[in-house]
Amino acid sequence: MLAPVSSGRSPVESENELTTLYHHRRLPLVRLALLLVDDLPTAEDVVQDAFAALMRRHGRRLAELDDPEAYLRTSVINAARSVLRRRRTARAYIPERSLHMPSADSGVLISETHQEVINAVRCLTQRQREVLVLRYWSDLTEAQIADSLGVSRGTVKSTASRALGVLARQLETTQ
């Protein structure tokens, strides 16, 4: 049996206060947490944990708290900050994906000369690769390449010229 609370309220009245607080403040607190963590299931967990912490720390004696809503709001904000810190830490330790993984049979299927050209193309900048692939693999005109990449024809011409120069230098050094 529960002992009566010091405020003179019965345990049933205190439980009703907690239930009423939960029903009236849960949704606004979930909205607050959602704005902070940008993930509904996590926001709901944060709010549920705040109510559980309130229950653990103060039981059903809400009269002892000056402002239970402020206590919950502070708990939600602190828990959301913790979630964001954990996310940031986890992202910092995720290894980078390798940019290119050759297939298992690439060495067999492509002759050594072709492999040298492919390796040299990998040394180009992304725009240079795009221009050369669109020009020589897809057989697009300068105007079509310019439209596809959203650049001028002059940019296509100069990029292709520089890319071919880099390729020539790369292939000279490998031979």
Rank of each mutant, 00 (worst) to 15 (best):
A90M: 07
P28K: 04
D67L: 04
A120E: 02
F51D: 07
A79G: 14
P11G: 09
S75E: 12
D66C: 08
Q126I: 04
V156P: 00
S10E: 14
V117K: 10
L40K: 06
T155V: 13
L99S: 11
R31W: 03
A50Y: 04
A3E: 15
S158K: 08
T159G: 00
A160K: 11
V12H: 03
S75G: 13
M101I: 12
V47C: 04
R57H: 08
A43C: 03
L62Q: 10
G154P: 06
R129T: 00
H114V: 01
E116F: 00
G154S: 13
M101H: 09
D105E: 05
E69R: 11
T141D: 13
T125M: 02
R127Y: 01
S14L: 14
G154R: 05
E15I: 11
A168S: 12
E130Q: 15
G165I: 01
R85G: 04
V76P: 07
I118G: 02
D67C: 05
M1Q: 08
R86E: 14
P11S: 07
E96Q: 14
V5Q: 07
P11Y: 07
E142Y: 06
V133H: 01
L32C: 09
K157P: 00
L65H: 10
R85P: 04
L132P: 01
L124R: 07
D147R: 14
G59P: 14
T42G: 10
V12I: 11
S148P: 03
L27C: 02
R60F: 15
V117H: 08
S111E: 14
H100M: 10
A53G: 09
V83P: 10
R73V: 05
V108K: 02
A90P: 03
T74C: 09
D147T: 13
L109P: 01
L124N: 09
Q144N: 08
S14Q: 14
H23V: 08
Q48T: 08
T113G: 01
R81A: 08
S14C: 15
D45Y: 04
V5I: 03
V5W: 09
R87P: 12
W137Q: 11
E116H: 12
A146W: 07
A146I: 10
S138G: 03
L32Y: 08
L140C: 02
T42D: 15
R135W: 06
A50C: 09
V156E: 04
R86P: 01
A43Q: 00
A92E: 14
P4V: 09
E130V: 01
M55K: 13
S152F: 03
A50G: 11
E96T: 12
W137C: 12
R97A: 15
E172A: 10
A50E: 01
G59I: 09
N119K: 08
S10A: 14
D147P: 06
R60N: 15
S158H: 10
R88I: 02
I145A: 02
E15R: 13
L35A: 08
R56N: 11
H24Y: 02
R26T: 03
